[in-house]
């Protein structure tokens, strides 16, 4: 099962290395990891998407993260109401005549063309990973020359409903 785990960590040198090293040593499979600054100076926020086989391993994962000296708080937000976003840049082959067509394909995804050249253009899209997956699938028809995704970053929603029906498989 895919889990979204967030961690608040002290921004000390080597912290990312220590955490990813621990995950590798304990055989956790990291699908994506993002790190950036937080609202507090000296603290960083990490978001992991990790494929975990069973509840016991998941418990180990959060405990091992918590055990790290630099880690202040760990949350598994998969089953809670959350906002999750990822950004992708997609370079698609396309001559000028195709631009209008591509524009109409990406419009429902609220993606935008951020760079145009003679024979290619770069599309920027933000959203949930499955939305980005869907857009990539559509753009394959034009020939994807290059693709980069940032990995997800996530937050708990301000309001948590009593019973949540979030599907953990689809993040």
């Amino acid at each position: 099962m895919r889990r979204i785990i967030t961690a608040t960590v002290q921004n000390r040198s080597g912290v990312l290395n220590r955490i990813t090293g621990m995950l590798t040593k304990r055989q956790f499979n990291i699908e994506s990891i993002t790190v950036g600054s937080s609202e507090k100076e000296g603290l960083s926020k990490m978001t992991f998407v990790i494929d975990v086989s069973d509840p016991q391993k998941l418990e180990q994962l959060t405990k091992q993260l918590n055990k790290q000296i630099d880690v202040i708080k760990v949350q598994d937000i998969t089953d809670k109401a959350h906002v999750v976003r990822e950004l992708a840049l997609i370079k698609v082959a396309g001559v000028r005549q195709q631009h209008a067509e591509i524009q109409s394909v990406i419009a429902p995804f609220r993606a935008s063309i951020v760079d145009v050249s003679k024979d290619s253009l770069i599309i920027q899209v933000t959203g949930k990973p499955d939305k980005i997956d869907a857009l990539i699938e559509l753009l394959k028809a034009y020939g994807i020359k290059e693709l980069t995704r940032t990995g997800v970053t996530a937050f708990l929603r301000g309001h948590q409903p009593q019973v949540t029906e979030m599907n953990s498989a689809s993040i």
């Binding site: 180990q60 918590n66 055990k67």
Partner: peptide, 8 residues
């Protein structure tokens, strides 16, 4: 004393 040892 190490919570990570519980149920490991």
């Amino acid at each position: 004393i190490d919570p990570a040892e519980i149920s490991k």
